[in-house]
Simulated assay, not measured.
Amino acid sequence: MLLAFGSLFAQHKTFQNPLLPSGADPFSTYHDGYYYYTHTLGDKLMLWKTKNLADLKNAESKLIWTPPTGTMYSKEIWAPEFHIINNKWYVYFAADDGDNNNHRMFVLENTSSDPFKGTWEFKGKIDTHPDRWAIDANVYNYNNQLYMIWSGWEGKTNGQQNIYIAKMKNPWTLEGNRILISEPTYNWEKQGDLDDAINPPHVSVNEGPQFLAHNNKLFIVFSANGCWTDFYNLGLLELKGDNPLGPQNWVKHSQPIFTKNEENGVYAPGHNSFFTSPDGTEDWILFHANDNPGEGCGTKRSPRMQKIEWNEDGTPNLGIPVSNKTILEIPSE
C-alpha cells in the first residue's frame, strides 16, 4: 500500500509533455486557485478548468460559445484568450466568414466571477484603424492603461504579417490608429519552405504576440515564420523607455529565444503564453509544437509547458524545448 500510494503521489507531482494529444495556440489564466485553459478549436470556444495544469487531460471543460451561422465571425475561430479586466471576464478571438482574407478580432464579456457561470455576451468586432486583416489579440494593463497587440496585414492583401499596438478605451474598443512595432526583418523570421506549392509562398510572419512583464521590464514574445514550416520559433521585443506606443521604443533582439530542437524531437515550437505557479514563485511558458518534421499547422500540434528562468540583464531565458520523455515537476504550489 505504501508503494502504491507513493507512486500515485509521484504521478501527481510530475508530468511529461504534451499536456494533450492536440491543441494549437494554448492560453491559460490562473484565478482563485484554478487554471482556466483554452486553445484553438476552429468552430467554437471551449474553456477547461483545473487546479493542476499538468493534469489538463482530466480537467473539467465547458462549451462557452458557438457562433451563429452566416456571419463575419462564424468560421475559422483562432487563438482565443480569456482575460480578467475590472473584475469581468473577456475572451478575445479571431474569426471570419470562411474566407481567410476577412479575418478580424472579436470579443465576448461575462460579468460573473466564475467564467463557467453567467452569460457570455457578444460585444462585437474590435475595430482597428485602418480596418485590416487581424488575428492573435493579446491585452495588458501597463501603468493603468490597457493596450492591445495583434498580428495583421499592412494592406488588404496577404504579403507579410506584422505586429501592431493600440491603446484601448475599454476592453472592446481601441483608441486611435494602430501603430506598427514589429515586422519580419531577420533571416530567422523569414526562413522556411519556399517551394511548398500547397501553402503560401511567403514565410515573413510575426504573429502570436504576448506581453511579458518582469522586474519593471516589459517584453513582447512573438512567433516568427509560417506555422507550416519547422522553423516556427519565438522572438523577443523589449520596451526601452515607458511609452509602448513609440515604435522606436521596441527593440527587437537579433536572435530567436526559443527554436526547434531535433535532438529532443520538438519541431515548430511557438504561439505561446505565460503563467505563474500557484505560489507565485515560478514563471512558465505554455506553447504548442510538433513531434516530427513536416507536420505543419494541422491537428498534430500539441500543448506543452515548461519552467523559464531570467537572465542577468532581466531578459527571459526560455531554455530549449524539452523532450516528451523528460519528467518535469509540476508548478510550485
Rank of each mutant, 00 (worst) to 15 (best):
Q255Y: 15
N216W: 12
N261C: 11
H288R: 04
S277G: 11
V221Y: 02
E238K: 14
Y232N: 06
E238P: 04
I257P: 01
K217C: 01
N261A: 11
A224R: 05
G226D: 05
D279V: 07
C227D: 02
T229A: 07
K260M: 14
A224D: 01
N272Y: 10
L234G: 01
P269T: 06
T281A: 14
T276P: 00
S273H: 02
H253P: 00
K217R: 08
F274V: 01
I285A: 12
S223F: 12
E238H: 14
V251K: 07
W228Q: 07
D279Q: 08
H288V: 00
P256H: 02
S277I: 04
D279H: 11
S277W: 06
N216I: 01
V266P: 10
L239S: 09
K240W: 12
N249H: 14
E262F: 13
P269Q: 09
Q255N: 15
I220P: 03
L239Q: 09
N225R: 05
D283Y: 15
F231P: 00
G265Y: 06
L234E: 03
A289Y: 14
W228P: 11
I257K: 03
F231W: 14
N264G: 12
H253K: 14
F287I: 00
P278H: 06
K217S: 08
V266T: 13
P256R: 03
K252G: 12
N233H: 02
A224W: 04
F274T: 01
W250G: 01
D283M: 10
E282H: 10
S254E: 15
T229C: 10
D279I: 08
D230P: 12
S223V: 00
L236K: 05
H271C: 08
G241D: 10
P256S: 04
E263D: 12
L237W: 08
S223W: 07
L218M: 11
T276M: 15
F275H: 08
L236W: 07
N225D: 09
N233V: 00
Y267R: 05
I220E: 05
N264L: 13
I285V: 13
G270P: 11
F274C: 05
G265V: 00
E238D: 01
E262T: 08
Y232G: 02
Y232W: 09
T276N: 15
P278C: 07
S254M: 13
I285Q: 05
T276K: 15
T259W: 07
S223I: 03
D242K: 11
P256I: 03
N261M: 09
V251R: 00
N233C: 14
W250C: 02
N249P: 09
V221A: 06
N216L: 09
G235F: 08
F275A: 07
N249S: 14
F231H: 11
I285W: 09
E238F: 10
D279Y: 13
N233F: 07
K260L: 15
V221N: 04
